[in-house]
Amino acid sequence: MNAVAPHVAETDRLRLAPGVMLRNDRRRDQWMLMGPERLLVLDEMALAVVRACVGPDAADVAAGIDRLTVEYDAPRTEVAADVLEMLTDLRNKGYVVT
């Protein structure tokens, strides 16, 4: 049986995958994750999640969720569900790694 890859967990520490960088493209006025032969345009929410939860000096994902919960003044369970889903998607697409 093949196991299905687990979701990103609150205890994970995430960083950008090799070759991936956060960039602002001034001409298009867009934030994006630029990676090997690909890019992902980030909306405001995705940018906030990446900034809070991913990076060389980011603590674990839980700390990022705490920050976003305060910043957006929303129930933590809802923020956590959205953030973990988004991060799992970013990991499966190869933009972030644990």
Binding site: A3, V4, A5, R91, N92, G94
Partner: peptide, 11 residues
């Protein structure tokens, strides 16, 4: 058949 187990490990 392998795609699910590869998710998150290799694109």
């Amino acid at each position: 058949a392998r795609l699910p187990e590869l998710a998150g490990r290799i694109v």
